[in-house]
Amino acid sequence: MILDIYKDALEYSAKDWKILVILGVVCLFSFLLLPAFLITGYNYRVINNAVHGVINGRDPLPEFNDLIEMFIDGVKVVIVQIAYLLVPFIVFVIFAVIAGNLSGAASSALMLIGALITFVIFIVAELMIQMGICHMAYNDGAFSKAFAFSEIKDAIDEIGWFECIVTYVGLIIITLVISFVVTAIIGLIFTAFGISGAVLGADPSGIFVLGALINSAITLFIVGPYLSIFNSRSIGLLYTMQI
């Protein structure tokens, strides 16, 4: 089932290259913060489609329209993320403060224990974030449903904590592999051009700069948006496993 989710999401994310470019352009201005909420809001739409769909369905990519609604959805998602991540952050700060008042081995041991506990809480928080956002989308965007802890826990229990963690780790691995492979292929191509130019007596620096620019552009306008949709679709489909 997990492999089916990945297969569906990989194919789904490539359905409309125009959307990828639009997201890339918006991402280019995300340092202004407001566009970043639009990207988050669009990914929420992808999740919303997924939780109301089926694996290997014929869902099209959501339209990039109704910007005010999309912005509001993005703000809601960011608030959910911050609220859940505050928990491991506060736990770590508490351990750090206590350890700071100790010395020697006791301080180091307490920090190690604190780091391990924080890591476990962080993993749980991440799962609650993902499933909470899916639960909110499934319940017609009701913000309170993102914090319906017992309902979200029941959903994770139904899917299986192990399955959720494995799926999430798999998404991280796939994201890293795709990013690395695309970057490596483009890098190798322009390295070959650069070496060939150097052999012929030309200055290869311009070729290397062009390669770096093209690599950055492809990452920004194609790979980045593709992977964000892929991750959102996968999480949404994972949620449907308990419906």
Rank of each mutant, 00 (worst) to 15 (best):
Thr118Trp: 03
Gly170Leu: 09
Ile152Pro: 10
Gly201Tyr: 02
Ile22Cys: 04
Ile2Gln: 10
Leu23Met: 15
Lys76Ala: 14
Asn65Gly: 04
Asp154Tyr: 09
Tyr226Thr: 06
Ile173Val: 15
Ala105Gly: 00
Ala217Phe: 00
Asn43Arg: 10
Ser13Thr: 07
Asn49Phe: 10
Lys153Thr: 07
Leu34Met: 12
Ala99Leu: 10
Leu67Arg: 07
Ile98Gly: 09
Gly24Val: 02
His52Tyr: 05
Ser108Val: 14
Thr175Val: 07
Asn48Asp: 15
Ile5Lys: 06
Tyr84Lys: 06
Leu23Lys: 02
Ile90Cys: 06
Phe92Ser: 14
Trp17Tyr: 15
Asn101Thr: 15
Phe64Asp: 00
Cys164Val: 14
Phe122Met: 09
Leu220Arg: 01
Ala192Gln: 07
Ile189Thr: 03
Ile235Asp: 05
Ile243Ala: 11
Leu116Lys: 01
Ile47Val: 14
Thr175His: 12
Thr175Met: 11
Ala184Trp: 14
Gly132Glu: 07
Ser232Ile: 08
Leu213Pro: 00
Met128Gln: 09
Phe37Gln: 04
Arg45Asp: 12
Ile172Met: 13
Tyr226Met: 04
Trp17Pro: 07
Asp16Lys: 11
Ser107Gly: 08
Phe143Met: 09
Gly224Cys: 05
Asn139Ala: 10
Asp4Cys: 04
Gly211Ile: 03
Phe221Asn: 01
Ile178Ala: 05
Pro60Arg: 13
Gly24Ile: 01
Ile129Leu: 01
Leu32Arg: 09
Gly160His: 07
Ala202Cys: 01
Arg58Leu: 10
Gly41Val: 02
Ile214Lys: 00
Val26His: 07
Leu61Pro: 03
Met111Lys: 11
Leu67Cys: 00
Ala146Trp: 13
Lys7Tyr: 09
Leu200Asp: 12
Gly141Met: 06
Val124Gly: 04
Ala83Ile: 12
Asp8Trp: 12
Glu151Asp: 15
Ala50Gln: 02
Gly211His: 03
Ile19Asp: 02
Val80Ser: 08
Val54His: 11
Phe230Cys: 12
Asn139Leu: 04
Gly236Phe: 05
Leu112Lys: 09
Gly100Phe: 13
Asn56Ser: 14
Leu127Val: 08
Pro225Leu: 01
Leu34Cys: 04
Val51Met: 09
Ile173Ala: 14
Ala184Gly: 03
Ala202Met: 12
Ile123Lys: 08
Ala50Trp: 03
Tyr239Trp: 13
Ala212Pro: 06
Gly41Gln: 00
Lys145Val: 06
Phe95Ala: 12
Ile186Cys: 07
Phe147Ser: 05
Glu69His: 10
Ser232Asn: 00
Asp8His: 15
Leu127Thr: 08
Val46Lys: 02
Thr167Trp: 02
